[in-house]
Design a protein around this nucleic acid. Structure first.
Lengths: 175, 175
DNA sequence: ATAGTGGGGCTAACACCGTTAGCCAACCGA
DNA sequence: TCGGTTGGCTAACGGTGTTAGCCCCACTAT
């Protein structure tokens, strides 16, 4: 395991244990028994670390989605549960623009695959689904919904609104 | 106009002209011909400024939505166009958890009203709609969609998926 | 065996960040 | 006239990402 990967491991730990504001070069270094400047021997800059986290998040989320129970509801449930299990990682990975040049090609596509499949191959519908799930998760994670809102009901409502289009065998826009 | 409001004006300008990373106490002060510590005579801390920006964004977006052409499509178009007209403000206002204790009561509700109305009063459907729009905007603003993706088509797809439920005269869940 | 090389640490330092303490001038009402 | 409030100021602190430059150690090639 490369030193860079060790750094990313530590970053994930710090992130989930202490939050994004503690994701500091000095803190990461301290956890590795090292001084901050030494990190730069293995990593270009902090954004490089963030990109690494994005990549990990994409891979892990993709795997999680791939194992979801079939159907829209199962996929949605998987998406939400992953995000709630790794809220800080989801945030960090999501709030920076995707560093495509620092991420292994194919990762982005692989993560999206289960959603595209659930949309019957319709890429626009797939993106709409993704946006819906992301929006719900993002708003939930940053406390935008009124306190006490019944988010399970909101998810149900959201899914039934999308359901008629594609839960039944594909008919609209196959291919 | 209070000095605090002047600060918020400047903050909006800096934000849209130079981006969030330039939204600095020293920068704001400089633009006002003042030194950074003096800002604290008018503002509790930086989060206070962010809260002020949130409030302004909510009010402005709410007004914009209220003037949208009736119907789901018009509302969606308004939401998207506001966000694209003020992308940094949208980001800042959206990426921090809502500081409800620093924002005038009713503002949050007023901003949401047009969406709730479009959902026929169904609060869960309203939140789903909001999340969909927010998700689309958020992903677009942070370049998560593959480069070259036809987002107009994605929005159309998203809206037609929601359409059957509520575009026709309300029938499902009135009240 | 020895010389050379590169990896991977280190300290010192820089510029910038939010923020506090403490001072002081101008104004304003009693 | 005098006191208090308002709104500036400088100095400073601790924290941030990051660079420059040094050095030691392991390894490899001659």
């Amino acid at each position: 395991m490369s030193r860079r990967d060790e750094i990313l491991d530590v970053a994930v730990s710090v992130l989930e244990e202490e939050g994004p504001e503690s994701l500091t070069m000095r803190k990461l270094a301290a956890r590795m028994g090292i001084r901050a400047p030494s990190l730069y021997k293995h990593v270009r800059d902090k954004d490089d670390i963030v990109a690494g986290l994005q990549e990990r998040a994409l891979i892990d989320l993709g795997r999680h989605l791939a194992g979801a129970v079939p159907g829209l509801a199962g996929l949605a449930q998987s998406y939400r549960s992953w995000a709630k299990a790794h809220p800080r990682l989801y945030e960090v990975a999501t709030r920076h623009s995707l560093a495509r040049d620092r991420i292994a090609p194919g990762v982005e596509y692989a993560a999206a695959a289960p959603i595209v499949a659930a949309a019957g191959g319709d890429e626009h519908l797939a993106r709409a689904l993704w946006a819906l799930a992301h929006g719900l998760v993002d708003l939930e994670l940053s406390d935008r919904f009124p306190p006490g809102a019944d988010l399970d009901a909101t998810w149900r409502s959201a899914l039934t609104a999308f359901e008629p289009t594609h839960t039944n065998p594909r008919k609209g826009t196959p291919r």
